[in-house]
Design a protein around this nucleic acid. Structure first.
Lengths: 347, 347
DNA sequence: GTGAAAGCGCTAACAC
DNA sequence: GTGTTAGCGCTTTCAC
């Protein structure tokens, strides 16, 4: 069966192909009656515009790309984060009749710039959603903007004045979590920092310090250890903290994977969570509900953020206005089972 | 800067555009010297063929679709499985200069057939990789084959004579795992079945029965409970099994998410794994290395399977030969910490 | 409000 | 081996 084309529809509706095109693209200047006739023809013929032809003529691919750090680069890959982003972007794409092209990449690769440029030019991406920590890498951002491809960054750390971005209130919410832990009586609250390349997690560290200060606690260098956002690094950091003399009574890790690693180490060492140790994470990925005990964490609205990013992106593409702006979608505390009052004798 | 086209390259190389096209597409019948000249021109102009134009002229999109069960439909979504498949397919796509379009879908949706058909016609997918349990749904398979789109199924349960598919030795390896548990002295080995719609997990159940038989054990109905592959269902099933009178000393769940759920329940109930209870899973997703204790499981070569599927698919597309065949990539046992000798007094 | 004509950048079919 | 000629099915431009 030869696919039905715009000509078939035009013939059946008794109009020119241009009018069909107008209806399909919701352009103005078509009488309601005509629109109805065309729509009917489209329905009976089950017509679907050919994207390739559309793309060629309009110089748009109706494809947007989601670029993120390749999870398989880590010992134990984390997947919940990526899936959430994908879901969010997909939702926006579906609504706007765009398709999503995913592209995990190794950002440490020397030729990452060329790779991205090739991807964009080859696939004719209409826009790009850039996930952290890629969203903080000047080289990558430059490679994209040089091709004039619209770009939205997720959770960028630095300044975002002349670009599109969506982020959450990392700093404030981390201060809140820290204050919450302090309010439970904890005095030695440790912090596991994240990926040093990921600027948003730097803000989380700042929030931790804010929270400490506002609770009248002093920050101690030995209570802050550096992870890389991976589960394994959480285990390593947790072990180090818990084996020190005068270990913390609470550990706040700046993502869930690391917090889950801490939880595992505590279990292994026979430390009772939350009675002897409180543990908190950040993200609220599925893993936070698969640990024992269930993880207290910060619910980052990742899917909503990704969706919003894609909406802004597509909006900018269709209106051709180089929009600018930063949307912030607030995170919230989720208290589950891994946090509790500080142990009394441990002071 | 106006993008460079095939005409620019032809002019610079002093040949016709058709020759450039030949070089780009690695077609035969071009002299080596000519090829070299064209390649040089391509390099200096940094030419990249326009996919839209290519697609329109050749009726190929250079896009393949990966369809899978939408993980966000579950209480606690599982993501490791999906990410692995994506990785595998992406690898093959990269090698063949294809792009990947992901499409999670709710297979229970009444209009799933139309949705898939629209996707295929709209995006002009050149081929589809169908993940389980979609790969077992006649309605979905029919919707795809009706559009004449090449299709590869992952882990289909039923017969696959006239179609492409990649699977693993579910049944045999499950028999092996069961026998392994029996060899540890376990006599009451429970099994948590998976998604009833997913035929491959039915084979796992059969393998469990094989293993029991070959170990001289009788299968008991009360030792088999039905889950749906989700973590939560693993918790529910685990609780039910462990709270029964005369509980099993080993539980074999037919995927890791459910096994992890069992592990959590055991921890909650104060049951010592592996000393009082052995637990085994299937898949070897990242979660299997994030539990306490680490999960003994069956390592399913998911990424390799997905890659192989995509290779077969692309191969069939480029050679236009309606290939047929089923590849089987064997799984292996991974013994970690959650299994051990059966408790002595518990017999 | 609607339509005619001219491409978009490439590949297919065939000629040379 | 290489080139010529037609489209692929749309959108764009501009005329009416």
């Amino acid at each position: 069966m030869p696919k039905t084309t715009i000509d078939d529809v035009a013939k059946l509706a008794g109009v020119s192909i241009k009018t069909v095109s107008r209806v399909v693209n919701r352009e103005p200047n078509v009488r309601a009656a005509t629109t109805a006739r065309v729509s009917a023809a489209i329905a009976t013929l089950n017509y679907r515009p050919n994207q390739s032809a559309r793309s060629l003529a309009s110089r748009r691919s109706y494809l947007i790309g989601l670029l993120y750090d390749d999870p398989s680069m880590y010992e134990i890959p984390s997947s919940g984060y990526v899936i959430s982003m994908q879901q969010g972007v997909l939702k926006a794409c579906k609504a706007a009749n765009y398709d999503l092209l995913i592209h995990p990449c190794e950002y440490r690769d020397k030729h990452i710039g060329t790779e991205i440029r090739t991807l964009i030019e080859h696939s004719r991406l209409d826009g790009i959603v850039l996930a952290p920590p890629l969203s903080d890498m000047p080289g990558i951002i430059r490679a994209i903007t040089k091709t004039d491809t619209p770009l939205v960054r997720l959770s960028p750390g630095g300044q975002t004045t002349h670009q599109l971005a969506v982020s959450t209130n990392d700093r404030e919410i981390c201060a809140e979590m820290t204050k919450y832990l302090a309010s439970l009586g904890h005095r030695r609250i440790a912090f596991i920092t994240g990926h040093p390349d990921h600027a948003a997690v730097v803000n989380r560290h700042l929030g931790y310090q804010d929270g400490l200060r506002e609770s009248g606690l002093r920050s101690a260098k030995r209570l802050v250890v550096e992870g890389d956002n991976s589960f394994k690094s959480g285990e390593r950091c947790g072990k180090r903290l818990l084996q020190s003399n005068s270990p913390p009574t609470a550990i706040f890790a700046c993502n869930d994977d690391m917090a889950a690693g801490v939880l595992r180490v505590a279990l292994q060492m026979g430390i009772d969570v939350p009675n002897e140790l409180s543990v908190a994470g950040f993200d609220d990925v599925p893993l936070a509900q698969q640990t024992f005990p269930l993880l207290t964490t910060v619910k980052q609205p990742l899917e909503a953020m990704a969706e919003q990013a894609a909406i802004m992106l597509i909006d900018g593409i269709t209106t051709k206005s180089a929009t600018t702006g930063v949307q912030t979608i607030p995170a919230t505390l989720v208290v589950r089972e891994s946090t509790g009052p500080a142990p009394t004798q441990a002071e």
